[in-house]
Design a protein around this nucleic acid. Sequence first.
DNA 1: GTATATGACACAATATATTGTATCACATAC
DNA 2: GTATGTGATACAATATATTGTGTCATATAC
Lengths: 151, 151
Amino acid sequence: MRCPFCGYEESKVVDSRPIDDGLSIRRRRECLKCEKRFTTYEKVENIPLMVIKKDNRREPFNRNKLMNGLLRACEKRPVSLNDLERIVNEVESSICNTLEREVTSQQIGEMVMEKLKKLDDVAYVRFASVYRQFKDINTFLVELNKLLQDT
Amino acid sequence: MRCPFCGYEESKVVDSRPIDDGLSIRRRRECLKCEKRFTTYEKVENIPLMVIKKDNRREPFNRNKLMNGLLRACEKRPVSLNDLERIVNEVESSICNTLEREVTSQQIGEMVMEKLKKLDDVAYVRFASVYRQFKDINTFLVELNKLLQDT
DNA sequence: GTATATGACACAATATATTGTATCACATAC
DNA sequence: GTATGTGATACAATATATTGTGTCATATAC
């Protein structure tokens, strides 16, 4: 593994211990060039993907729930089911790739909105109005104004 | 490493590849009991801890900058330098522990505010007023009203 | 103060991971 | 349509990681 200090491409493991009851492995590595040491963690890709909701409760990530929100936002809009599947897939895999076990519903909303914005303005604003409704009414108005000005 | 499917404590590596230009290692593992396969990633702990600012530019995380913000918020308030050091330490290490390479300035602000709120209401609102000034004026007012009602 | 937990470190004996080469499947790009 | 990139898979030869034991330092708990 590449050294995070000097960038040299080889390092060796000097210690390796299971942690989290065996669910992860912590390694101490040493750069073969600059000899600096650093810690790495090996973790399982995804499995327990939890969403932190606004009231701080946790629940498992649910593709269908996200898809339903998207379908509602796209009602009578020229967005294909394929596009929506793609968005859900991309969001899910980008959450998995962070290797985080938890993600806030807000972060998910932001990711979805970023992608939806490129597809359909109206669907984007509908979706945003649900995700940001209580926290950020001004932002919603600002977004609406931006869209009005752009057209 | 423990199997995420059946929970058995031993698995073997069936493939191992460097990714991200050598910064991480992806491994395919197979459980020695149920023989199911899963993917793991080994990543460096922290090092390039970058903050994503509001305008989407990145800059390295800077303890001093955060501390300055806290000091300004706590001017003439009964909050010790020790407490502030503790907050900065806790925020920094909780960012490191996520193993994410990037974090938004907003996320940092939220973490700080959560901790500051427990220490001093006035410092909390001062800090919040800086972190949320453009995005969330309503939230700021709501917070002020909450504090006024609580006292 | 003592007790407890955790991370870093070292050493030695053993077991296992790594790397290149190559194929297949799938999805995206043009 | 073809080209391109990526993840999963297999195999074989080689190199390296893992695990137990034990110490030390630091921080937190009581």
